[in-house]
Design a protein around this nucleic acid. Structure first.
Lengths: 356, 356
DNA sequence: GTGAAAGCGCTAACAC
DNA sequence: GTGTTAGCGCTTTCAC
């Protein structure tokens, strides 16, 4: 009843079934002496099937390492269980996403949050040239929706995606013309807290390190500026500096400060990476942190607590962030239009901002 | 002939086709006045189709944002275009992969290498509890093969996978009982170079920081030990220390050194993360690097060049590594059994190991 | 060169 | 409860 029923049309070989012919539902059905539908139902836990039958089939499946073919099931069911996570690279700083521990922490958090919901994560890096290909993962039915990281410079493409009604969520900050849901932290509050803290530490000549072209950074700048105003310090000080999230030009900025004999006594850097390389650049020029000036970073990347000096920074709760992004996307996939989410940003005071 | 033929049973609405009914080949065929097969051939660039027809269909497809449904095509063609990249977590240090910039650099490199070959990357983190589920991505036909990162403590599961003939490649080091292809750097040489360098810098009491349970680390230790022997230094010195890739216990080790009044004058740490937190722990206790002792790390993570002091380290060429892993997996997918690959490890001398 | 038809492996009506 | 049947959207013989 088990082997004799097998038709095996052309009989490819005596022992070798063919090459590695994957076991499938039909095989289980034959072996269990039931129909394919019964196997399908049993495996999907349908209450229609007798517990005994179900157990028998489940056992059989396990013993053969059988797993339902996800592609076929998804084709038939017309649904998708994968989500695309796209790291959108910046034109000027192509490797940003790759080398930024902050982004990677977010990705890792996303991996967990997606897995919790049984969703697969398709991760890809997109360079600016590939802008036009943003929708193909969705159009080709590979993924049900997109989680996009690296909003800046992709704004138009993102809006175009949103216009096409692609289920998507973006990590970053809400921007005026944005027609998509965004998850981000309260950057204004973060910038404000950081600046207030520096001022409370006695800093009077503050510098801001960050590229305001990034919506998040712009918001942090606003909070920073507000803190300055509240403290009666020069609002639009000469200490504003435009640098990306990357490190190379930090040293040049320090040189400019020193050449102009006008160095700040407190710096708010918009990423821990920037803060770290600032501390190094200062050290190379004989300036100590926090001795000669105080520094606050942003992100609270894993090493921030382990550098010397340890880095005061504004922490973005990545575990929550991943979950929030996935939650929102799940809602979008259910046809809803969830509002953007703003997570708290929390100042972590460590050594770099506290004069000993 | 276009609308009238469509049955459209319940007629959901006048203008709304249904909900978001995806355009598909049948639609293109109807609109282009050809058969579905012609569309399929045209889109896949078959030479059978007249260039004119092909162009017409391609244009039509583009104008409708049509993309061939990857799932259906792959089902029919019986092939897969996705690869699983699995971050295997360690029992004791669950977040290792997530927070290790080195791993993330590798993942990013893999993303690029896979994209180059038109392969999608399914990224997932596996905790030890999920060990039994390692093969499901393959068994369920979601991915054609696996790239596994985090060999240690998963050895048995990996061998079991290999035994089941799952197309796979592992990042790490070859181990005696391993029945799978491995890509890694020359850890023995890396450890040797690092130790030689420290010795050349005048260090005589060396310490080794790393958990020898990791095959890679064990090999680095061998190289380290060989260098000691060659220099006539105590081979199995009391300075060997077992710590994982993570940071917390480093401070405790430093305390032990100081309590025993037996501190090394040179340390080879098996990850930059460890080296960095060592430098911090030393600093907290009044010991400067490279002033009081020299340190060499491993990996050359992106920040290594930007810390203070900048970190001497053994660089693992991640760009090459990603490509090698993908190459090997591609070969396995072609039915070959490629040999393991050992990439060079290169010492990068920076400040932390050079007495000023 | 193009079209008709037969599935890929599965699910879900619909019968019984 | 279980089986039969008709597809999901596509590729690919096979005829013409």
């Amino acid at each position: 009843m088990s082997e004799s029923l097998k038709p095996e049309p052309p009989v490819p070989g005596p022992t070798t079934p063919k090459r590695h012919s994957r076991v499938q539902m039909a095989d289980l059905a034959r072996m269990a002496g039931v129909s394919i539908s019964t196997v399908s139902r049993a495996l999907s836990g349908s209450p229609l099937i007798q517990p005994a039958t179900r157990e028998r089939i489940a056992l059989l499946a396990r013993s053969l390492n059988y797993q339902v073919n996800a592609g076929a099931a998804s084709l038939r069911r017309r649904d998708l269980s994968a989500v695309g996570v796209l790291l959108l690279d910046n034109a000027e700083r192509p490797m940003q996403a790759a080398s930024d521990p902050f982004i990677m922490t977010l990705v890792s958090s996303l991996a967990d949050a997606l897995a919790e919901r049984g969703l697969d994560m398709l991760l890809a890096r997109y360079r600016p040239e590939r802008q036009a290909q943003l929708p193909v993962l969705v159009d080709s039915g590979r993924v049900a929706g997109l989680i996009l990281i690296g909003q800046c410079h992709w704004h138009e493409a993102l809006n175009e995606l949103a216009r096409r009604d692609v289920p998507m969520v973006v990590w970053g900050a809400e921007v005026p013309g944005g027609h998509y849901a965004v998850v981000g932290t309260d950057n204004e509050a973060g910038g404000h807290e950081a600046a207030c803290h520096l001022i409370a530490q006695g800093c009077r000549r503050l510098a801001f390190l960050g590229d305001r072209a990034h919506p998040e950074v712009e918001q942090r700048f606003r909070g920073y500026q507000r803190a300055l105003q509240q403290a009666g310090l020069e609002a639009s000080s000469p200490w504003v500096e435009a640098v990306g999230f990357d490190v190379p030009e930090v040293a040049a900025i320090v040189d400019r400060w020193l050449d102009a004999d006008a160095r700040p006594d407190g710096v708010f850097a918009c990423s821990d990476l920037m803060a770290l390389s600032l501390i190094r650049a200062l050290g190379e020029r004989g300036l100590g942190v926090p001795g000669d000036l105080q520094v606050v970073g942003y992100d609270d990347i894993p090493i921030a607590a382990h550098t010397q000096p340890s880095l005061s920074t504004v922490r973005q709760p990545m575990d929550v962030a991943g979950r929030a992004l996935v939650d929102l996307l799940a809602q979008r996939l259910d046809g809803l239009h969830p509002a953007s989410v703003k997570l708290p940003a929390e100042l972590c005071v460590r050594e770099s901002s506290v004069r000993r």
